[in-house]
């Protein structure tokens, strides 16, 4: 059943190559334009967790977590497309559990996220000379897959409960803005004001980015990163439970 859902997601994605193209290259554009620009501004590099490194190396993990978040957003928008097509409720009468429905939906998009990350990392290493820790490849892959799934499950209850596309759009813009800038995505947290640093440490996007940063360029304390990894997994599981619960009870009241 999960394969059927994945295949359907593939079919839908393949009908909009423009969408798929931007999904694949947008993070790369971010890295090349934003990352390179700031890299030149911080020519001497930046310090994070006591390690000096180039901004582009620092920012690579930020781009990867943005990419996961972006794909999760697009996948959650899929609920609105399904609703417009009238298919959403029909899917819920198909012979599958609510969990299978959600897992199938995100699995294909996790693969898309992985493909996108390979392109971004490839360009980061080849064009920008980022010194990637290849021995952490498994951790990078896990970070991308679990990150995409975690953010999708987080957004699902909102996509299901907010009935209007425009309201969901506004909600996403606000949430994304707050989560991005109150996190370690763009800058190290050490120099931030106390209140913002506290907010950032409580932000799952920080946990996700820190794990990817450790995996890509070995910045961060392994123990702290491990705690952040488990915290993100707990966040993903809680979000998944809440999404399934929403599908069970909240969809049609």
């Amino acid at each position: 059943m999960i394969v059927a859902i994945m295949y359907r997601e593939f079919l839908i994605r393949s009908t909009s190559l423009t969408w798929a193209f931007f999904d694949m290259v947008m993070p790369l554009v971010y890295l090349l334009v934003f990352g390179v620009g700031l890299d030149k501004s911080f020519a001497s590099g930046i310090e994070a967790h006591g390690t000096m490194l180039s901004y582009k190396a620092f920012f690579l993990s930020g781009v990867l977590s943005m990419a996961s978040f972006g794909i999760a957003i697009n996948t959650s928008y899929g609920f609105f497309v399904d609703r417009d097509n009238g298919l959403f409720y029909e899917f819920l009468t198909y012979p599958m559990t609510r969990s299978q429905f959600l897992v199938g939906k995100i699995l294909f998009n996790c693969l898309l996220s992985l493909g996108q990350s390979i392109i971004t990392i490839g360009f980061g290493v080849i064009l920008l000379g980022v010194d990637l820790r290849w021995e952490h490849a498994l951790l990078i892959i896990s970070g991308i897959l679990f990150g995409t799934a975690g953010w999708f499950f987080f957004l699902t209850p909102f996509a299901l409960r907010i009935r209007r596309n425009d309201m969901f759009n506004t909600f996403i813009n606000v949430v994304y803005f707050v989560l991005m800038f109150a996190s370690s995505l763009f800058y190290p947290l050490e120099q931030l004001p106390g209140w913002l640093r506290t907010a950032a440490y409580a932000n799952p996007l920080t946990w996700h980015t820190d794990v990817l940063r450790y995996a890509t360029v070995s910045v961060g304390q392994p123990n702290t990163v491990m705690i952040e990894a488990f915290a993100f997994l707990a966040f993903m599981c809680a979000s998944f439970w809440f999404s399934v619960h929403t599908l069970h009870r909240g969809v049609l009241k």
Binding site: R8, L11, I12, N85, G86, L87, Y89, E90
Partner: peptide
């Protein structure tokens, strides 16, 4: 078959 139209419009 639900009352609302439910088809994959782009397939």
């Amino acid at each position: 078959v639900l009352q609302e139209n439910s088809v994959e419009l782009f397939l």
